[in-house]
Design a protein around this nucleic acid. Structure first.
Lengths: 227, 227
DNA sequence: CGACCATTTGATATGGATCAAGCGATGTGG
DNA sequence: CCACATCGCTTGATCCATATCAAATGGTCG
């Protein structure tokens, strides 16, 4: 099961100080935004590598980022997708356990990790925020575990519903990742993902308006599959 | 795929103040042990339920605890096993996301959550420990994700190696859980787990000395499978 | 237009699930 | 102490969902 390999592509441009869209601020982790620089990455560009020192934490401004890990024989697992507003790369440890790549053209806010950690030392409010963020990651990872014991149809349905919710784009989803990315996230092959989507379309559960644009026609049916 | 249901059995005895075996103390989280009471649970007794308020955190003293979640149709996922020395039930949120049951006769140290949280407010050392513990959980969950994309043989091999390492019982493992627990942890059926073990025994990779006692005869072969 | 890449579709193979029965240890009552 | 029920595990036969292999289609860009 060979999958595409991440291209260590050069970022589109060097960090530019300061400019942070106000919309990026969310209650959780919002404090962090003051101290960042923005960078752009083109599709499949590596943002940080597995095993590399975790010197930065990141917030997605636009586009989408996937975290992934590749086994010796080439099988790839995509741990998760990070959408605009999401933070990633935050761990108390000094090394990234997954690599991170842009799954679509993306802008990312880069924040010095040491700065945050130092501040959390004194600021128990911030310390708790960091803990909460890691716990959210944990929750997501556990939810994903529950997905991986289900059937292909259930996995795809769950994925679509999650994306619809997180993109806050009710009833239609503009997927910021390839079929291969989805397959590697769901532990399926690209063919199975494709076939499952086609099947759902035949059942009028969804409409594949364009390969990356999915309209949710029958949300109830998807929820039912989500079991 | 119906699985056994957890019995809400009465604990063997009521909490007894104070007595903490010194061996239970580990560097991480060791600070917590001063404020606990010990309880005993018999096999399959529920320690805490999914969705219940997370008023306590726990440390396994002896035996083993599994965390699990059951889907509407009865499919069960065992999120993880907690062995002597391990902490579980720690989350910044107010509700448990998994239920916890004793997978074998167990003694568990029970610690009031509020006491710990209050203390972490002032003690940035402790706060960081809590964060680190959650991050360890996350790491385990992610490692488990990688297991679930592998073949049955790889999953079982990985599981045995993990248990051997965590039980620090080199070359032989005394499994503190049923085949069904293992199956639900690995996303396999009980039959497949059993067959895989038998197969490995035929290959002289392991020896099933007793159904719960596995001797690792050829660790290299297991590691190779672990891919 | 032609090359390239992502996606879909088709035909076939297979690993693990499912259904069903057997086995061995443990415990209980007569 | 033995018949017998029970429980956890193993073994066997068959089936099916998904992987694999292969080719066609479609969209994008120079």
């Amino acid at each position: 099961m060979l999958t595409q390999t991440a291209v260590r592509a050069a970022p589109l441009k060097e960090p530019t100080r300061g400019h942070v869209p106000p919309t990026a601020a969310r209650s959780i982790g919002g404090t962090l935004d003051m101290m960042g620089a923005q960078m752009s990455f083109c599709r499949n560009a590596e943002i940080s590598g597995e095993g590399e020192p975790a010197d930065y934490i990141y917030r997605v401004v636009s586009g989408a980022v996937r975290t992934s890990k590749v086994l010796a024989d080439g099988r790839r697992q995509v741990g998760g997708f990070y959408l605009p507003g999401d933070l990633f790369g935050l761990e108390p440890g000094d090394e990234h356990t997954f690599s991170a790549e842009a799954s679509a053209e993306s802008k990312v806010l880069v924040i010095k990790r040491t700065a945050v950690l130092a501040r959390a030392e004194r600021d128990s409010e911030l310390a708790r925020e960091l803990w909460t963020l890691t716990a959210q990651e944990l929750r997501r990872s556990q939810d994903h575990l529950m997905l991986l014991i289900k059937s292909a149809h259930e996995r795809v349905a769950g994925f679509l519903l999650e994306m619809a919710e997180r993109l806050a784009d009710n009833s239609a989803v503009e997927l910021p990742m390839s079929r291969q990315d989805i397959a590697d996230h769901l532990g399926l092959t690209i063919e199975t993902v494709s076939r499952t989507l086609t099947h759902m379309e035949n059942l009028a559960t969804i409409e594949v308006a364009a390969s990356r644009r999915i309209v949710l026609r029958n949300r109830a049916a998807l929820t039912r599959l989500n079991a």
